[in-house]
Every structure is written in C-alpha cells, then in structure tokens.
Design a binder for these strands. Sequence first.
DNA 1: ATTATAAGACACCAAATGGTGTCGTGTCAA
DNA 2: TTGACACGACACCATTTGGTGTCTTATAAT
Lengths: 109, 109
Amino acid sequence: MNDNHPSRDVFDAIADPTRRRLIQLLSETAEIPLHELTSQFDMGRTAVSKHLTILKEAGLVTDRKVGRETRFRLNAAPLKEIQDWVSYYRKFWTVNMLRLQQLLEEEEE
Amino acid sequence: MNDNHPSRDVFDAIADPTRRRLIQLLSETAEIPLHELTSQFDMGRTAVSKHLTILKEAGLVTDRKVGRETRFRLNAAPLKEIQDWVSYYRKFWTVNMLRLQQLLEEEEE
DNA sequence: ATTATAAGACACCAAATGGTGTCGTGTCAA
DNA sequence: TTGACACGACACCATTTGGTGTCTTATAAT
C-alpha cells in the first residue's frame, strides 16, 4: 500500500481557477478523457494534464486508461475537509461580526 | 471609493496553512497586534505581515493603527464564497459516488 | 533625553507554479 | 501497413511565492 502520490493539500488543489473549472466539468459527466477536457481550455494538453495530476495528488480525481485515452473522474470526498473547515467560520459572518466588533470596541475606549 | 487593494482570490488566500492559522487565531480574539501574531509562528515579522497583506487583499482581515501597534481583526464574510462553492459538491460525496460510478460503468461495458 | 519597541518599506533569494514545446510510444482507423 | 491520434515524459522558461535581512520612522517607557 505505498502511496506514490506526493499527497497534496486539498486547499492548495482548489486554489487554482483552472482546477476548479476542471472539477466543475468532471462533476457534469461521469468520465472524461484528457483531450476532451483540454479542448475546453485556452492552454495546451500538457498544462491541463499537470493540473489533473495535482488534483489526483489531492485525491480529487482518479484516472484509468481506456484504449489510447486516459479518462478522468471526480472524487469529491476530499472536499469534505473544506466544508468542515469553512463551516466553523460560518458564525462569524451570519451576524455582521465586523460591525459588531467595531461597536464593542468604541465602547471600551 | 477607489480600491487600492489588488483584490485577491479568496481561494488563493486560504490555500496557505500559515494564513489559515492566522484566520484561526484572529477568530479567537477580537483584535490582535502584529507582534503578538508573529510570536505564534516560526518565522519573522516580515513574513507574517506579508501573509496578513494577502488576507487583507482578499478582504478577510482589516487592520488599524493603535499607538505603535497595527491591530488586525477577522472579517469572515468572504468565506461565504468558499462555502457556496463547496456546498454544490456535497451531493457528490454524501453517497459514495466514486464506487457508484464505477459500478455503473462496469455494467455499460 | 535616551532607549527600546512596533512596524512599514525595501532589496534580495531559492523554490514552486503554471505555462510552453518536443520527442517517443501505444493504439485506433484506412 | 501506414498514418493519425492520445498521451506520458522531459526539458525549458518567466513569474509568483514565501521566506530572509536591513534601514528608517513613529511611539512608548525609563
């Protein structure tokens, strides 16, 4: 069970807009070959492939060879970590905390 | 009302673990001066200050000068964008979609 | 008045990032 | 069997990133 994948931070993986768009595309179809994904972007196959590698390292996509194609699929499970993280801060924006804190501070002075 | 801040992508801002820890620290106290934040990290003041600048550009923190200190505070509101984004993918991990898709595919072949 | 503290503004640097182009190979089609 | 296609593996490059150190200035403390 050796890993082989250098294991990426999921936060890091979703930081790039191209990778978020890849995730979006992969969520729309069960399985998509590289060349088909590439045609959706203004960049070469190599670049798209690199982004997919990063997503793979974060566990967000898996791939398999079918004939001469490499087909990619989404595995959204690691995104749970993002939701867990962000949900903690929800209480800080539901009320307008910034305004609240400012008022509290003006009083204390 | 000109911006002045180059406006950062929130996804980009939270990609760095140091910045996430800063957000964590700022969520625990209403307002913290730079030197106090710096003491929590294994890096110089300049580095921490740079991270805070990035968070500021993303709108996640605000700062104000008090005496010789610069005090920082959290503004979690922009994190809503993260939650909105990730919540869309929740349906993909609630069921074990990966396994499900694999099964569907084995059938179709 | 002198000294210590807090922090902004730089200049600097190594490593990572996000792209490119090319070459070689396996696979499908004519 | 010949050619086109899909892709991995590189080598390469400019820019960004994430850190450093130094200098200067404003403020606070003694």
